[in-house]
Simulated scan of single mutants.
Amino acid sequence: MRIGELATRAGVSVRALRYYEEQNLLAAERSPSGQRHYPDGAVDRVRLIQQLYAAGVTSRSIADLLPCVVDGQATPELLDRLSAERDRIDRQIGDMVSARDRLDTVIAAATANWRTGQRCRPE
């Protein structure tokens, strides 16, 4: 498939796909006229890249991880790095849950105050 079709199917911009190529996260074959052509599996690969970026994984770590996803090969060092990334994501999830819980408390208090006619005052 061509770059525009991959962008549409994966829900990303053409610019993002070009960036992934620059970072060696995605590869395309070139036609004689220079057009990029991607295999059908590229959609899943782009979605995985997007998920990992959204989780805060660096492009270098993603580049190291992708061969493991494709062929299942990993060194002990890479497994340690991946475990550390997972632990970092777990900490972020915990921090976000804590922030959400604090917001819930503030919203509940503000709602109760609003119903009784009290207003929040900036400090």
Rank of each mutant, 00 (worst) to 15 (best):
G56L: 07
E123W: 10
A108W: 02
D90R: 10
L48C: 11
G56A: 10
R36L: 13
D90V: 10
S61P: 01
R88I: 01
A10K: 05
A108M: 03
P76H: 03
P32T: 10
A28L: 01
V12A: 04
R102K: 09
A27G: 01
V12T: 02
M96L: 15
L48R: 07
V70I: 14
D40Y: 03
D64C: 04
E21D: 06
D44M: 06
D64V: 00
Y19I: 13
A110E: 05
I49G: 03
V70C: 05
A54H: 05
S13T: 06
A74C: 08
R60P: 00
E123R: 13
L52G: 00
D104A: 11
S83K: 02
S59P: 14
I89R: 01
Y19T: 11
T105P: 03
I49K: 03
Q23M: 15
R115D: 10
D71C: 12
D44L: 09
L66V: 08
E123D: 09
R15N: 07
I89V: 09
D101P: 05
R30I: 08
R102C: 03
T116C: 02
S31H: 06
R60H: 11
D104Y: 07
A108F: 00
A42V: 11
D80H: 13
V57M: 02
P67L: 07
R121A: 14
Q92R: 15
Y19L: 14
R119N: 12
Q23Y: 04
T105L: 14
A55G: 02
R36N: 12
T105I: 12
D87G: 05
C120E: 10
A112Q: 09
V46T: 05
I3W: 02
R102W: 05
I93K: 11
W114P: 00
G41H: 09
S33D: 13
G4Y: 06
R18W: 15
Y38L: 06
L82D: 01
G56E: 09
D95S: 11
A16I: 02
W114S: 12
R2D: 15
R60L: 12
A28H: 03
I89Q: 01
V46M: 04
S83V: 04
N113S: 13
E77C: 03
N113M: 14
R2E: 15
C68H: 09
G117L: 11
V12L: 06
D80T: 13
R15Q: 10
L103R: 12
A54F: 08
V57W: 00
L26R: 02
R45C: 11
C120W: 14
S83Y: 03
V57A: 00
L66E: 01
M1R: 12
E77K: 02
R119M: 15
G34Y: 02
V106A: 12
T58E: 07
I93M: 13
Q118H: 11
Q73L: 10
I93G: 06
Q35L: 12
Y53V: 15
V69E: 00
T58R: 10
Q73C: 06
A99K: 15
D90A: 11
R36M: 14
S13C: 06
L103H: 08
V69F: 12
L65E: 01
Q50Y: 01
G4D: 10
T58C: 07
W114R: 09
E5I: 13
A63G: 08
E77N: 10
E77M: 04
L65Y: 15
G41V: 09
D95E: 14
S98P: 05
